[in-house]
């Protein structure tokens, strides 16, 4: 079942200038992006900084003004901010990148996790406490920590608090924006394992936004590669990693460090070849503004941004 459908999404930010502060131009943060996600799957949005992946996530979440396009969630059109009624909002939640700045330092854990519950459910004090403790247990923190403040926790534990808050209302879709990039390697692994566990347990759908292709490969079923606000390639994990078609994707894949020291010479050579190919064939893959072309299907699931033939 398709849970989220995004059609021709555009998010433009105005550039204002002059004494009348008129809009002189636009930054096309997201430029004509379409995708759909099946329930229970993990959809990866990959790109370098400034590629528009976070803006896409925030637009679905209802945190950005949408310039054009439609977003259909669970059969309902939620494009307009006003239409994101309570019912929709509780079903889409977000896990933020930085666990140090996304938790209010002056609130106790109890209040942080109970906030969504207080907004949407009328629970008595006792019930609320019980729910918060259940959630803490689910994310692997001790139920006694409800009276602590965020600074008393480590980065990984804070991220778990952020996750507990996101799953408090049993949402259908979670948008995870670089959920582990601020964490150490072994803590990263702990959080990723945990995200997969709760996905199975609660039947969650993830939009997983990341710049780390190794992690995306581990977590995602389908992957889209973004560049300057546009999709350059979209496909299943196997298609993107084993048969990348677009030069930009190839370049990204070639840049992943290999944890096999014996391959380093080979990798170095490979990267140089790809870099050369990138420079030589840049004009074949990008239009005169340096943007990707619109997507053309190469198989049922695999779309690549290639110019029209002829």
């Amino acid at each position: 079942m398709v849970i989220l459908e995004v059609n021709n999404l555009k998010v433009y930010f105005p550039i204002k200038a002059g004494i009348f502060n008129r809009t002189v131009n636009h930054i096309k943060a997201v430029d004509d992006v379409s995708f759909s996600i099946e329930q229970g799957k993990t959809y990866g949005l990959v790109g370098e900084s400034g590629s528009g992946k976070t803006t896409t996530g925030r637009a679905v979440m209802g945190l950005e003004n949408i310039t054009a396009g439609t977003i259909i969630f669970d059969g309902k059109d939620i494009t307009k901010k006003q239409s994101k009624t309570k019912d929709v909002r509780r079903n889409i939640q977000m896990i933020f990148q930085d666990p140090y700045s996304s938790l209010n330092p002056r609130k106790r854990v109890k209040d942080i996790i109970a906030e969504p519950l207080r907004n949407f459910e009328n629970l008595s004090k006792q019930e609320e406490k019980k729910r918060v403790q259940e959630l803490l247990e689910l994310v692997g923190l001790s139920p006694e920590s409800i009276l602590k403040y965020p600074h008393e926790f480590s980065g990984g534990q804070r991220q778990r608090i952020g996750i507990a808050r996101a799953i408090a209302l049993k949402p259908k879709l979670i948008i995870a924006d670089e959920p582990v990039s601020a964490l150490d390697v072994s803590v990263q692994a702990q959080v990723l394992n945990f995200m997969r566990d709760i996905q199975k347990e609660l039947g969650l759908t993830y939009i997983f936004i990341s710049h780390d292709l190794g992690i995306v490969k581990h977590m995602c079923d389908d992957i889209a590669i973004m560049y300057k606000g546009r999709y350059v390639e979209q496909g299943t994990k196997e298609e993107i990693f084993n048969y990348p078609q677009h030069i930009y994707t190839k370049r990204l894949v070639s840049a992943i460090p290999d944890t096999e020291p014996g391959n380093r010479e080979k990798r170095f050579k490979f990267r140089q070849d790809i870099q050369k190919e990138f420079e030589e064939s840049y004009d074949d893959y990008f239009d005169s503004d340096g943007l990707a072309y619109s997507l053309k299907p190469v198989s049922d699931t695999h779309l690549v941004a290639l110019p029209e033939k002829g």
Partner: peptide
């Protein structure tokens, strides 16, 4: 070493 995602690994050993 095992907390870095590798090919065909479902669960990260950590």
């Amino acid at each position: 070493l095992t907390s870095v995602p590798a090919e065909g690994q479902d669960k990260l050993l950590v």
